[in-house]
Computed example of a mutant assay.
Amino acid sequence: MKPFTSCFAEHLAGYIKLKRGLGLRFDTQADTLWSFDKYVHEHGCNGLLTQELALDFASSNPNVTLKSVVRRYNDVRNFADYLATYEPRTPRLDPKVLRCPRTRPPAYIYTQEEIDRLVREARNVSLKNPMRGITLRAMVGLAASTGMRVSEVVRLDKSDVNLDTGMVSIRQTKFYKDRLVPVHVTTLDELRNYASARDAFFVGCDCPAFFITMWRTRFSKHTLSLAFINHAKQMGVKTTSGCNPRFHDLRHTFAVTRMVEWYKSGEDLNNLLPSLATYMGHVHYSDTAYYISATAELLGLAAERYHNWLRAWEVHDET
């Protein structure tokens, strides 16, 4: 982290140190607060941290979304609460001055044929450099077969993937939890093939990441997401909403496919949802249950089961 230079420098550094001392990563918030410090310094602000100052900073970048403006404001607002402990004249910033509607981006559920093509043709994304295709194929295949988040895929280290047992260790994920993810034997074969090709291609590379870019570095979420979008477009994959196909939609597809199979086989979804939630790293079962409404097929199967139960209950009641 670069040094702070504004009139709030000492307290900004102390605030970030406190948050990280409590076990939080606090990386995104720290970046925002560094930008805030730079903004305050460049504009020659030497007074109190007012709501006007926080709003001016939050909206100073015309290229960010409303969601980003709200996040930037709230990061500064939370710091202001901390600052008030040392500077009692600091006013309390209004938590409701900016509102952002909470909407989930529409999930696109890939068909099995699309998944097969995306995995199969990933190997051919670069005829000039086959290693790029081998890497993308392994990453897409792993996400499609396990429902892992894009951040979890890129953060895997070599030590996290047991190529003997097929067990993948996911550490300090979205909600700062660890979990073990067993992979299917076909996925394990792909991971072994990739690891063998990687070690032969990147001889002497000391990067600990399991998946390595052509620059011998760890992938970022942005790099992988963009590579997948370009690949999906080349394959002619088009979402119903008109948005770009997303790497994260592989996760949606995994969850929906699993629940469809359970419904069709007559399994009790209420008993199995906790297992799926644990496997996918969800904190709340409601996050997993969201997928029930993700497709017409799954919603139809749920409705059909309900009507069958209702008819059976009515027959029982008549007797």
Rank of each mutant, 00 (worst) to 15 (best):
L12C: 03
G14M: 08
Y15N: 08
K19E: 08
R20T: 14
T28P: 07
Q29L: 11
D31H: 14
W34R: 06
F36W: 12
C45G: 09
N46P: 09
F57D: 12
A58Y: 13
A58K: 07
S60I: 13
K67P: 15
N74V: 15
N74M: 08
N78C: 12
N78L: 09
A80V: 03
Y86W: 06
E87K: 07
E87F: 01
P88V: 13
L93W: 06
R102G: 15
T111R: 05
Q112R: 04
I115N: 02
S126K: 00
L127K: 14
K128L: 11
V140L: 03
T146M: 05
G147N: 07
M148P: 04
V154I: 15
R155S: 08
D157T: 13
L163I: 13
G166S: 04
M167W: 02
I170D: 02
D178P: 07
L180N: 11
V185L: 11
T186Q: 13
L188F: 03
L191I: 02
L191D: 03
Y194E: 13
P208M: 04
A209I: 10
F211C: 00
T213C: 01
L224D: 13
A232M: 01
K233H: 06
T240L: 11
G242E: 11
R246S: 07
F247T: 00
L250R: 03
T257G: 04
M259Q: 04
V260N: 09
K264T: 06
S265N: 08
L273P: 06
P274T: 15
I292D: 00
S293N: 05
L299Y: 09
G300H: 07
A302L: 10
Y306W: 01
H307Q: 14
W309A: 01
A312R: 05
D317E: 11
E318A: 05
